[in-house]
Simulated scan of single mutants.
Amino acid sequence: MRPKIVLFGDSITEESFGEGGWGAALANNFSRTVDVVLRGYSGYNTRWALHIAERLFPAAEVGDGGGAPLAMTVFFGANDASLPDRSSAFQHVPLQEYKQNLHSIISFIKKRWPTTLVLLITPPPIDEDGRLKHPYGDNPSGLPERTNQAAGAYAKACIEVAGECGVAVIDLWSKMQQFPGWEKACLRDGLHLTSIGNKLVFEEVVERLSQGGLSLETLPVDLPLLADIDPRDPLKAFQD
């Protein structure tokens, strides 16, 4: 069975298979070597993700013949960082609980699949003007339900967890803000990604996977490439 990479996260992951999405780009990049499996849930935070983890990745699947995923991205925090006194308060998770939940999610994955490469991705930065123009639901306060400062605190916590657990991490919060005009160039509504933002995530994920030994150069294709098939005897390529 072809190996797989699992993308686990919130709406930024759920939307990643859309046009120009970073998940679709990953699937295309690894099209002959790895199946990219989408497990993205719009609006979810780490509390909810931890609650559903057993349902998503039941123990029975460990012995289903498919083997452990080569890698899993864990991309939560944008919803956890919603401010507790504004319109998306129901999604808020306190910072220390966020850290503990990430620890628990990583522990869960490693218990299921000890060899799986876990890649944390921090929440992206927040364009507060974009959030005011594209609020989720009613926003009577007239204030953004997320701030870049809060997102940065959760990004820092995510990086700390990666260090404590010995797993890879992409500091998307910092990386994205290095892009000129990132607020509108990388984010379409102050939170979700544009094509440029998706490209940035894709490139970062590919780089981290490569650093972990997962790249087109190291992963075998599952069947002979066309260039390796002899036109005079095509079926010979399939005899091994």
Rank of each mutant, 00 (worst) to 15 (best):
G21V: 08
Q91D: 07
K184P: 00
I105G: 02
R188I: 14
M1V: 14
G63Q: 13
N29V: 10
G163C: 11
P224S: 10
E160I: 05
A168D: 07
A25Q: 14
L191P: 03
H134G: 03
M1Y: 10
P84S: 12
F76V: 02
R112K: 08
E14Y: 04
R188A: 11
F179P: 00
V36P: 06
L209Q: 01
D127A: 11
G190C: 06
S42L: 04
T33Y: 02
V36W: 02
V201W: 09
A150F: 05
A151N: 09
D129A: 15
N28D: 13
A27P: 09
V93K: 09
M1F: 11
L226Q: 07
S215K: 09
G130A: 03
P69K: 02
G181C: 09
N148K: 01
L223G: 06
A81S: 15
V62L: 13
I105C: 02
G152H: 12
M176T: 10
L219N: 05
I159Y: 01
P123E: 02
R146V: 10
Y41D: 00
A89S: 14
D64M: 03
L200Q: 11
R112S: 05
N79W: 10
L38S: 11
L56R: 00
E97Y: 06
D85G: 08
R112N: 04
T122A: 01
I196R: 14
K156A: 15
S210K: 10
V37E: 13
I159K: 04
E128S: 10
V167I: 04
M176E: 12
R86S: 11
Y136I: 15
K175C: 00
G67C: 06
T115Q: 14
A168T: 05
K4F: 02
S141Y: 11
G20H: 05
T147P: 03
D127F: 05
R32G: 12
W22V: 01
V36Y: 02
K110Q: 12
I126W: 03
E97W: 04
F108H: 09
F90V: 13
G190H: 07
L200A: 14
D228R: 04
F108L: 11
N139L: 05
D10T: 06
S42E: 01
S42W: 04
G152E: 10
Y136D: 11
G23C: 09
A237G: 02
G20K: 07
A60Q: 13
G20F: 10
E160A: 13
T116I: 06
E164A: 15
P231M: 08
I12Y: 03
S107W: 00
L143M: 15
N45A: 11
V62N: 08
F238W: 14
V221I: 10
T116R: 08
T13Y: 07
L117K: 06
P3R: 04
L7A: 05
A89R: 15
L172T: 01
D240G: 08
T122I: 00
A68L: 06
S31A: 07
A150E: 14
A227E: 13
C158S: 12
A168L: 09
F30T: 04
G212T: 08
W173P: 01
K111N: 14
Y154D: 07
F179I: 15
A71Y: 03
P234N: 05
D10N: 14
G77P: 03
L102F: 06
I52T: 13
N28G: 08
A53Q: 07
A89V: 12
G77L: 00
L209G: 03
A168H: 03
N29A: 14
A78T: 13
